[in-house]
Write a protein that binds this DNA or RNA. Sequence first.
DNA 1: GCCACACATAAGCACACACTTATGCGTTTC
DNA 2: GAAACGCATAAGTGTGTGCTTATGTGTGGC
Lengths: 104, 104
Amino acid sequence: MMEHDIFRALADPTRRAIFEKLANGGMNASALRQGMDISQPAMSQHLAVLRAARLVREQKEGRFVNYEVDPDGLALIAQWLAKYRAYWPARIDALKLLLKDMDQ
Amino acid sequence: MMEHDIFRALADPTRRAIFEKLANGGMNASALRQGMDISQPAMSQHLAVLRAARLVREQKEGRFVNYEVDPDGLALIAQWLAKYRAYWPARIDALKLLLKDMDQ
DNA sequence: GCCACACATAAGCACACACTTATGCGTTTC
DNA sequence: GAAACGCATAAGTGTGTGCTTATGTGTGGC
């Protein structure tokens, strides 16, 4: 299940931090480790999980592997969220999220 | 962390199924168990996790406890998702999710 | 009052998972 | 070609988590 991979991937705080870091610009695995107190294998494993969830995608450049946010994963979350738009709180003004013509 | 509770809650397929079931209408814990092959304590524990994540809220009615979708949790997911709207895929036509004036 | 019921909580167990160290693989550099 | 580097993978370990059975708590019906 695809949405299962996504939610499971985001359930880990370290992976969310990695994802958030990548959202500010793609970088390679070593650069991602800066200031994160995480071993190289751990980072590699986290990136593999994020990749499987399509939240992140890789772009091999020589011996470096540049990682960046994969829009596909975000789209899947949005699709999941859209299923429950009937419950989106109209009263929360700060959240002006609108959905149009999303019927299937 | 609030978003941590949410993603962790949704990482479990059984809890996602419970949530989806509640999205089709609120009901009590026993009714939720119908056709789910899950023990009463397991259901109670899952509901506690969903409640802590604000994905579900309870409404006590006598000795029954009616559960229903809590919009607050969904709003928090939407807020998390909105942080990455720069990466939302414009090319995915099926997803016509629009965000307006969401700056903080 | 007493039993049946709906649900929550406690305690224990098996498994998933995030980490570690060690090693392998491919690329760049000299 | 050999060493250094970036990254992936293997194998092992401790902790978290979802389940179970057993029991507790509160409500309604007789």
